Amino acid sequence: MRVVEEAGIPGANQPHFGVSAKQKLYEFLCSRPAGADAGELIGLLLSGVGSDPELGARLVRQLIGDDPNFIFDNDAAQWRLAQSDRLRVGLDAAEFTVVDLETTGGRAGPGTIIEIGAYRMVGKRLTESFSQLVRPHGGVVPRFITGLTSITTEMVREAPPIEDVLPAFREFMGDRVMVAHNAAFDFGFLDFEYRRIFGIGLANPVLCTLRMARRFMPSLKRRRLDLLATHFGLSLEGRHRGLGDARMAAEILSIFLEMAHRTGITRLDRLLDDHHRGIAGKRIERHVPPEEIAALPHAPGVYLMRNERGDLLYIGKARRLRERVSSYFSASVKAKTAELVSHVYKIETRVTRSPLEAALDEVRLIRELKPPYNRMLKSA
């Protein structure tokens, strides 16, 4: 492997680029299908070098210039993944699969999906549908889930298990962009089962209509699926069932695609780029799996965010831990919060008896442990 000195940087302590650096660029560009310039890419790898665009360009070309997975667009002066070319289509021709799952609870696990509903879309048009009840492992639908969805144990008794359903759904999904309302939830369950059954996770690009609502309708206070449908005058038929909720999300997506077009976003890759950026224009890098956040308790408590080495970065309090922690991964976060999230690999939670106890624990732990981002965000 060539070292940085070959790119024209003198000095004895030269860093070596390896597979991990290339993988980091690959993962970054997966969520930037429209591409990124060399300054952005080198900024991911080396602090300070991004201020010299010519140096950054040489370093990036040295690292990925001969790799067929990466393409350099001379006209735009940007790098992108070769696989992203299929996303460089107009929104009117873009293909989506809008998904809604019903499950036995909030935590992904083997056989916890009890219904899959989905619609294929081309642009703003709904085309084909997929609907299937699934027999959960153990065969029992919890009573509170029946109250919410009307799906009973008797209804799923003769349904096929997820092992038989998922191959057909994977074919229905194809390589289209996956869309869901609060997509982290549905993605977490599907990704878990994809990994368990197929040995490889769900790799489709993802759009979240909840995140899009925050992006295109910032003044709207409540963005639950049924409330958005009511706001737009859409039918609520089939609420809390897979196909009914998937239809609502698909119709809402159609409206948001029109809103995106009005703001000048006319291509799918650019919509996906915009989707992964916060309000300050900073992309949110996520290292904590969605299913881990979905498994957090609704109880009050404190949360401790740690980096890849386990170093403590930030301590916070919450009335409901799951909702508070999930808010950090929203596209509406500020730039400094997005920077914090990009370093978080593990989130530890400590449940308390009350929000007051959580607030007191937060103050005590911050005073004792002095996490750096508590000071940085307070002064922001």
Results as ranks from 00 to 15, higher is better:
residue 70 F to R: 14
residue 357 E to A: 04
residue 145 I to N: 14
residue 144 F to S: 09
residue 33 P to W: 14
residue 196 R to S: 09
residue 351 V to P: 00
residue 306 R to A: 12
residue 166 L to I: 13
residue 308 E to C: 02
residue 84 S to G: 05
residue 320 R to K: 04
residue 263 T to G: 03
residue 237 E to I: 02
residue 135 R to S: 10
residue 239 R to F: 09
residue 292 E to N: 13
residue 149 T to E: 12
residue 98 V to C: 11
residue 70 F to P: 00
residue 180 A to C: 05
residue 72 F to Q: 08
residue 264 G to E: 12
residue 8 G to V: 00
residue 227 L to T: 03
residue 234 L to E: 02
residue 252 I to L: 01
residue 292 E to F: 13
residue 208 C to Q: 05
residue 253 L to I: 00
residue 269 D to N: 03
residue 319 R to N: 07
residue 222 R to Q: 06
residue 315 I to E: 05
residue 65 G to M: 12
residue 342 S to A: 09
residue 331 A to S: 09
residue 107 R to K: 05
residue 117 G to K: 15
residue 337 T to S: 04
residue 205 P to D: 13
residue 187 F to A: 06
residue 379 S to E: 02
residue 327 S to V: 01
residue 224 R to V: 10
residue 158 E to P: 00
residue 202 L to F: 10
residue 349 T to S: 06
residue 188 G to A: 13
residue 52 D to G: 08
residue 234 L to A: 09
residue 338 A to L: 04
residue 335 A to Q: 08
residue 57 A to I: 00
residue 10 P to H: 14
residue 117 G to C: 11
residue 85 D to A: 05
residue 369 L to W: 10
residue 130 F to W: 14
residue 101 L to K: 13
residue 110 P to G: 04
residue 361 D to Q: 09
residue 218 P to C: 01
residue 86 R to S: 04
residue 176 R to D: 08
residue 339 E to G: 01
residue 380 A to F: 11
residue 76 A to Q: 13
residue 60 V to R: 00
residue 98 V to E: 06
residue 293 I to K: 14
residue 240 H to K: 01
residue 348 E to F: 02
residue 95 E to I: 02
residue 238 G to K: 15
residue 321 L to G: 05
residue 371 P to S: 06
residue 132 Q to E: 15
residue 325 V to N: 06
residue 360 L to N: 04
residue 235 S to G: 11
residue 82 A to D: 03
residue 255 I to N: 00
residue 129 S to W: 12
residue 147 G to N: 11
residue 263 T to N: 06
residue 379 S to D: 00
residue 263 T to C: 04
residue 201 G to C: 07
residue 107 R to G: 06
residue 269 D to F: 02
residue 251 E to G: 03
residue 306 R to G: 10
residue 108 A to P: 03
residue 318 A to N: 05
residue 140 V to G: 01
residue 193 E to V: 15
residue 28 F to G: 08
residue 230 T to R: 03
residue 150 S to I: 02
residue 163 E to F: 01
residue 39 G to L: 01
residue 196 R to A: 05
residue 293 I to G: 03
residue 367 R to F: 09
residue 57 A to S: 14
residue 350 R to L: 12
residue 152 T to R: 15
residue 49 V to A: 15
residue 36 A to D: 00
residue 275 H to S: 06
